[in-house]
Every structure is written in C-alpha cells, then in structure tokens.
Design a protein around this nucleic acid. Structure first.
Lengths: 233, 233
DNA sequence: TGAATGATTCGGTTATGATCGAAGTATGAA
DNA sequence: TTCATACTTCGATCATAACCGAATCATTCA
C-alpha cells in the first residue's frame, strides 16, 4: 500500500525511553563506550547492548571498535537535527524545582547540539554573522562571503581547510528552544571548538549546557556586539 | 536530571504502527472522521479511539466535532514537517514489485505535503521562484520580493490577502525524497490549490501523489521553464 | 597461559500497552 | 419516543519487547 519510506520504524527506535536516554547522551557528538551508555540509561549492560544493536541497525548510531571497547556515536549531524526537530513538538517541561528551572535556563542560554552551538548563544552568533554579511542564507546552507572568510580566518578558523572535508560546510539547524536556525556543519563545529579553545566558553559538567566565561562575555561584546550578561532569562 | 523537553514521548506516539498509519493518512492536511481513520489503519473503532485520544493529548492532532462525527487533522504544518524530517532518516523502501516501484516514482515525482507541494515538482518550483527572484531565502522563511508579488498576483494569488492569516506566509519544508527545501506556509498552500484549480495537476486516487496534466506540463514549461516530461525517474 | 575486563548472546520472566467485545453516551432521523 | 449511527469508555486478553541472570566471546595484562 504505502510506497514511501516509513517514519514509524525510526520513531519507534527513538520512542523507547532507554534508547532515547542513550541518544540524548550522545547529542553532544561524543562517542561513548557501551558500558557508559548503560550506566547513563540506568540499565544493565546486556539490555544496553540490545538497544545499541537496534540503533546501529536503524542507522541512528555508528560504532567504532577500539580494542575491547566499543564506542557508539550518532551516525551524523543529520540525526541530531531530527532529534532537535522532534523536541520542537515535545510538550514543555513543567518546572518542579528551582534547581531544575536553573538547569533549563542554562541549557536554553547556551548548549552544544552535536558538535556546534545552540540556544540563545548559538542563534545570536548566527544572526550576527548574517547581519554583518559573513554568511548569506541559501537553500539548505549558508554561503560564506569574502568578508566572512577573512573574519573567520582572523578568528583562527581556516575556511579553505575545513572546506576539504566531506560533510557540508555551513548548514542551518533548527533550535528547539529559540525556534530559529543556528549554524551547524563543519564551520559550526569549527567555531564551537575555537570558542572552547579560546576559553570564551566552558562546558557545564554532566550537561549539554555551556557557560560563557567572563573573558568570553567581554570579547563577544567588543568583537561582535553580542551582549550576553543578563540574558539568562 | 534532564532539564529540557523530552523527545521520547513524541517519538513514542509516532512510533506505534497504527498511530503512524493514521498520521500518514492525515499528512495531506485533510480532516478525517474517526471511523475513516480506523478503517485506514485497519483497527476497530475502539482501538482507533484510544490512539486518537493519545495523539490529541500529545498535541499532534486537533479534533473538531461536527454533530456526531469527530474530525481529526494534524495539529498544524509543523507536525507535517517533523514527520517529513523523520522520513529523511528512515531506511529506503526495498522495492518488491513493479507496481510498488511505480507508486514510489509517482510519489517522488510530485505529491502533497500537508497542504502544499513536495517531491521533484515542489522542489523544482521553489528553486525556480528563488532563481527568478520571486522569493529570497531568509532565516526560517522566504521573503516575497516585489517582482514575486507581481508574478503571484498575475498567477491568481493575492499575496496581501493571505498575508493577513496568522500562519507563516512562506517557509521552507525539508523534502524527504529530494533532500532539499520546498515552499510551505500559506503561500505554498495557496500555490498548490491554485494549481489544482487551474487543472495543471490532479490528485492520484488514494495516494498523496499528484499527477501533472498535459495542460500543466505545457504551462510549466512555457511560463516557468520547468521541464516535467521524462523526469519520472 | 590464565585472570580480569568489556561487551555480546541466549533464555526465561515480566510488564506494558495494543487490541477488541460489550456496554455506554451523544447526536440525528423516523 | 424509538431506532440507528458515530464514537467513546470499560474490562479482559494477549503479544510484544524490555529486562536481567548466566554463559560466551574477545581483548588486554600479568
């Protein structure tokens, strides 16, 4: 009857709470061993193993064997994008505690999405790049302008070098908290790691949230006109 | 622990084969009564009722009561978009029969996606509008240029009139078969219904596929330079 | 070679939730 | 009223798949 691919299969894979917890743990782009994923999802190694096999079978995860360890990671940025898109449909969390509310604010403010930045910070950076003429929006991707190439180069990102890579250079990714696009792709990834490298942002332990350092706050304001103080709303 | 919305819940709703069949039946934007959905998903009315309640509870469907009938439809175009995005991750169907292969070609060639057009035709139309300067891509939406407004007006679509509507005017929607964006939003919907009205396209019975008529083929070629013959690949 | 560790396979148990029969509610028509 | 239709609620059944204990495989290290 149905002549086109079936979304029920993929949704079913994602829909199991345990598998969802695993996918969630991998959303930041890391590769984790099976035991770690079992621990994070609070199930036994056997159970985890079965789930991971299904996720690999369904092409949502990729696996890499290193000695007796098996490292699992998302099959690609496209998987992270679909998960973020799904989150868009999810009912907003009802806040129970002050602590939980704080964590939600953190994660809305700035977080990693696979290997790039999302949240207010991610969206704001992207918006600034477009209004300053560094990026131009095209179908399914951002084009990097000459001005942009110079700016990124000065910032310590060699656009030509990362252009070599197979993956797409600069693509938009839908942000579930801001409901706007932020920069993904190789350039998005490079930008995020450069910001970590410069110490403008640091990871919040055991969370996808990212904190902007004092140094980062100053530089973002001076160099890009992005005000980040008091934006934690 | 998790401070952000959970995609497992939504994915779980979509992941059940029966519910997925119902969502699929509604992907063209129609509103169908519960009994019809039960028939299409091959379950009893009681079972269907339970599933529909869950889908409404999860804000994936909206329900409208007319007398003793209850009409269910997708809660909005955003739901259709997420379903299309999910389909992007789904494994390609393995073709068993010539008949199935033909249906797949049909649906790849041209189909409705909620209330607008998708497939090769949808993507090609959108591409043409952009290259001819009728639309310009911006963040999360297409901007309609002055030239575009005139062209759509000549084509029988009053852009100012549909701009009044609440829903977004012209937004991109990811196409699972072409893996590019096509035009969604109020303008996308208006375009589709105008093409039906003009008799350039007709629906294929019991399918989301759309067939381009001889008349449509000629006009698309002359007025927009879109060659549709022999593109059924 | 043997012991220890990481991970998977197998088999049996259990719980969740999809399913439908039967009964109940609401609307419309005679 | 009474009957028919559209749909939902309740209750019971049943199947699927998540889960873990035990055993197995594979790698590393002593």
């Amino acid at each position: 009857m149905n002549a086109y691919p079936d979304f029920a299969y993929v949704a079913g894979l994602i829909g199991d709470p345990t598998r969802a917890a695993m996918l969630d743990s991998l959303l930041d782009g890391r590769a984790l061993p099976a035991s770690e994923l079992a621990y994070l999802a609070r199930v036994s190694p056997q159970t985890a193993s079965a789930h991971l096999a299904k996720l690999v079978e369904g092409k949502l995860l990729a696996v890499e064997t290193h000695g007796r360890h098996r490292y699992y990671r998302l099959a690609g940025a496209h998987v992270a994008q679909v998960l973020e898109a799904l989150t868009t449909l999810a009912p907003p969390v009802q806040v129970r505690s002050l602590r939980q509310s704080d964590r939600l604010k953190e994660v809305r403010h700035a977080r990693t999405c696979y290997d790039h930045l999302a949240g207010q910070l991610g969206v704001e950076l992207t918006r600034t790049f477009v209004t300053r003429g560094f990026l131009r929006e095209a179908d399914r991707e951002y084009r990097i302008t000459e001005v942009g190439k110079r700016w990124f180069s000065d910032f310590g990102i060699d656009v030509e070098a990362i252009r070599q890579k197979r993956r797409s250079l600069a693509r938009p990714c839908l942000d579930w908290s801001e409901r706007r696009h932020h920069l993904a792709g190789a350039l998005g990834a490079a930008l995020a790691s450069r910001l970590f490298e410069l110490g403008w942002i640091v990871r919040v332990p055991s969370s996808r949230a990212v904190r902007i350092t004092e140094k980062g706050r100053e530089h973002l304001a001076h160099q890009l006109g992005i005000e980040t103080a008091g934006r934690l709303t």
